[in-house]
Computed example of a mutant assay.
Amino acid sequence: MITIDLPPLSNTLGFVSLICYVLSLLPTILRVVFPKTKKNRIPKFLLKHRRTIGILAFIFALGHGYILVKKRDVDFFDLKTLWIYIQGVITFGIFTLLTITSNDWSVKKLKKNWKRLHQLTYLAMFLLTWHIWDKMSGHWTYITPVGVIMITGITILFLVRRWKEWQVE
């Protein structure tokens, strides 16, 4: 039986990080899947502040990870332990790269490679979906269903976006 608990601070930080991450993905996905949203203020605002929102997602994810690693005394040099947390570790690594390169200097220096590097965000999206489903199974809080719906919804919208782009090519 599933029990629903109050979320600990670590889960709340992970949830806020997820909200920021989804908000950073929305503008491009909405523009392709729902073209009429191009003129809407919200996607324009999100697009303008995408980097800042992405950096906020990283900061909250850092807090989420730090609290959990400290609380559980995780040893990443133990392969069995590393395998248990592999989705979170890889996703966090991707978020770290994206955050470090979310500035004008990196865009200028990396040129086309900057865009390629930032395509990793979509790999992170799939890893994050796996991470949430895997880690929250049987440990549901009041925010878990919302988080699951958000990450699943944005993933489905991304797949619809790719399908629409593929049809145009």
Rank of each mutant, 00 (worst) to 15 (best):
M1K: 14
M1Y: 07
M1N: 12
I2C: 04
I2H: 07
L6A: 14
P7G: 15
L9D: 10
L9N: 06
N11E: 12
T12I: 14
T12A: 03
L13H: 03
L18S: 07
I19P: 00
C20M: 06
Y21V: 12
L23I: 14
L25G: 10
L26W: 06
P27H: 08
P27Y: 06
P27N: 15
T28K: 06
T28R: 11
L30F: 14
R31F: 15
V32F: 11
V32M: 10
F34C: 12
F34N: 10
T37G: 03
N40W: 15
R41L: 14
P43W: 13
L46T: 13
L46V: 12
L47I: 05
L47T: 08
K48R: 12
H49D: 06
R50S: 10
R51G: 14
I53W: 01
G54V: 11
A57S: 13
A57N: 02
F60Y: 13
A61F: 01
G63E: 08
G65T: 11
Y66Q: 04
I67N: 03
L68W: 05
V69H: 04
V69F: 05
V69L: 04
K71P: 01
R72A: 12
R72I: 06
D73H: 04
D75S: 07
D75I: 08
K80C: 00
T81E: 13
L82N: 10
W83A: 15
W83I: 11
I84E: 14
I84T: 09
I84H: 12
I84K: 09
I84C: 05
Y85R: 00
Q87E: 09
Q87P: 03
G88Q: 01
G88M: 02
V89R: 05
I90K: 01
G93M: 09
I94T: 15
F95S: 03
T96Q: 01
T96F: 03
L97W: 11
S102W: 02
W105Y: 14
S106T: 12
L110I: 07
L110W: 02
K111H: 07
K112G: 01
L117G: 04
L117K: 00
H118C: 02
T121F: 05
Y122T: 04
Y122H: 13
Y122K: 05
L123T: 14
L123F: 06
A124R: 00
M125P: 02
L127V: 11
L127I: 02
W130Y: 08
W133F: 15
G138D: 06
G138A: 07
H139K: 09
T141L: 05
Y142H: 10
T144Q: 04
T144A: 07
P145R: 09
V146W: 08
G147H: 00
V148R: 09
I149Y: 05
T152I: 08
G153Y: 07
G153N: 13
G153C: 09
T155S: 14
T155A: 10
T155N: 13
V160W: 03
K164D: 15
K164H: 08
E165W: 06
W166I: 14
V168W: 11
E169H: 15
